[in-house]
Amino acid sequence: MNRQWMEFTENIKRLYKKDFVALHEPTFNGHEVNYVTDCINTGWVSSVGSYVTRFEEGLADFVGVKRAVAVVNGTAALHIALKIVGVEANDEVLIPSLTFIATANAVSYLQAIPHFVEVDEKTLGINTIKLESYLREIAELHQGDLYNKQTKRRIKALVPMHTFGHPCMMDELVAICDKFKLVLVEDAAESLGSYYKGKHTGTFGKVSAMSFNGNKIITTGGGGAILTDDEKLADYAKHLTTTAKVPHRWEFVHDEIGFNYRMPNINAALGCAQLEKLPKFIEQKRDLAKFYQKVIMNIEGVELLKEPAYAQSNYWLQTIMLDERYKRDELLDFLNENGVMSRPIWKPMHELEMFTECPKMDLTVTERLEQSIINITSTPVGVK
C-alpha cells in the first residue's frame, strides 16, 4: 500500500489516541454504572423491573411511535415482528441478499422462505425500480395476496434493511407494498437516529425491529425492540415474548407457544443511560463522517458512503467503497496489520450454503458490492 494509506491509519490512531483502534466499541460515559448498580442493589435484574418500562417508553418517544417492546436481541425482535404480521410456514419474504444473517434467519425461524432481492449501489438499500419490475414479471395477485408464479407460494412481506444506518427509499417501498399487497416490516437494526425526509426509520412499516448489540449506536449489551403504532400488535408482541403467559398472581397458564424473549431489567438499565447520550453519539458519528471525507478525499479509487440526499443518517458504521483497482482483502490486511480494525461487508445471503436454493432475482450489483465495501473504525469520538 502507498504512503497515503499509511497516513490514513496514522490519522485515525491520532484521533483515537490509540495504537490499535477497534471497529466499534461501546461508550459508557453516563449513568450506566449507577443504573446497573441500582438493579443489583434492589434485586430487579431479570425481565421485570422499572428500567424495562422506562427504556421502552424512552425509545418509543425518541423514534416517534406509540409502542416499543424490548426483547433480548434484534433477531428476536425481527422474528416476532414477522410472526405478528402473519408470516407463516412456506410463505416467501422479500429481503435484500446484502444484509446481516439475522434478517434471513428470522424469516427461517417461521419456516418461511427468504426471497432475495437486489440493492442500489449508492444507498445499499433495496433497489425499488428493479424490485417493482421483477415483481411484475414473477408474481401475480390472487384474492388479495401476492403469489410467486414459479413456486406457487404466497409472498407475504417485504423487509427493507437500512444498511449501516443509511435509510432506504421508503416512499417507493411503501408504494410497492401497497401495489402488491405486501406487509412492510422494517429491519431498522442499524438505523436508530436515522431519518427519511425528516421521519425516523422504523416508522413506515406495520412493525419494525431494532438492535442494541454491543456494537450498535447505543447498546444494552444484548438487546432489541419491536416498534409499532398498533397497540394490539404491541400487546401481542409483549405477550408472545413473555412466554405467552396469561397474567395471574400465581398460576402458570400459557395460551399458545411463546418465547422467552423479554429484555432483562439490568440490560434495560444500560439502555436508559445510553438513550440519554444518543443525541451526542449521533452528532459525533456525523462529525466522524466529515473527518473521514477529508482524510480520504485525496486517495484515488476510494469514496466514503454518504447519506442519501433525502435522508439524515446516523452513520452507524463508516463505510468506504473501492473501485476496480483495489483488491479488497489486500487493503483489509494492511489496515488491520497497521492498527485500524476493518472488516468486509457480509457475504451475500444467497451465497451461503443454507440459502442457495432460495428464490432470488438478478443480484449482479450485490455480488459486485461485496468485493468493494469495507467498514472502518466507527466508535463515536470527539473530532472537533
Rank of each mutant, 00 (worst) to 15 (best):
K199W: 07
Y147E: 06
P167K: 08
G202E: 04
G205Q: 02
V185I: 09
E186P: 01
V174C: 10
K197C: 12
S191T: 02
M169A: 14
K206I: 15
S211W: 00
S208K: 01
V159E: 03
G205K: 01
T201E: 06
M170H: 11
M161S: 15
L182E: 12
D178I: 11
I155R: 03
Y195T: 05
E186A: 00
H162W: 03
A157P: 08
C177S: 13
A209K: 00
G165C: 02
Y196R: 01
A175T: 12
D187T: 04
F204R: 06
G205M: 08
S211K: 01
Y196V: 02
A188Y: 02
G198T: 02
K206F: 10
K206L: 14
L146E: 09
D171C: 06
K199I: 10
V174Y: 12
A189S: 14
K156A: 15
P167F: 10
Y147D: 08
G214D: 11
V207Q: 03
Y195W: 08
C177A: 12
F164H: 13
K206V: 15
S211F: 00
L173V: 09
I176Q: 10
L184C: 07
G198S: 03
S208W: 00
K197V: 07
D187Q: 09
L173W: 07
Y196S: 06
G198V: 09
V185N: 02
L173P: 06
R154L: 07
L182V: 14
P160K: 04
L184I: 05
L158E: 11
D178K: 15
V174S: 12
G165Q: 04
C177R: 11
R154W: 12
S211M: 01
A157M: 08
S211H: 03
P167A: 11
Y147C: 07
D187Y: 09
T201F: 01
I176M: 11
F204H: 15
Y147F: 14
R154V: 10
V207S: 01
K179L: 07
M169N: 12
S208E: 03
D187V: 05
F180W: 10
F212W: 00
Y195N: 01
G198D: 03
F164E: 09
G214I: 11
V174D: 07
E186N: 02
V207M: 01
D187W: 11
V183R: 15
S194C: 05
A175S: 15
G214F: 12
E172T: 13
T201Y: 00
V207A: 05
M161L: 12
I155A: 07
V183Q: 14
G214C: 10
A189H: 00
V185G: 06
D178E: 12
D187N: 10
G198I: 10
D171G: 10
Y147Q: 03
R153F: 13
S194P: 02
K197D: 07
R154A: 06
E186M: 01
G165T: 03
M170G: 04
R154G: 09
D187S: 06
K197M: 11
H166Q: 14
Y196P: 04
V174Q: 12
K152R: 13
L173T: 05
K206H: 11
L192F: 00
L184T: 10
L184N: 08
F164R: 09
N215G: 09
G165E: 01
F204P: 07
N213F: 13
P160E: 08
F164L: 11
K181F: 11
V183S: 13
M210K: 04
L182G: 11
K149D: 07
N215Y: 14
S211P: 06
N148V: 14
G205F: 05
F180Q: 12
E190F: 00
K199H: 04
V185F: 01
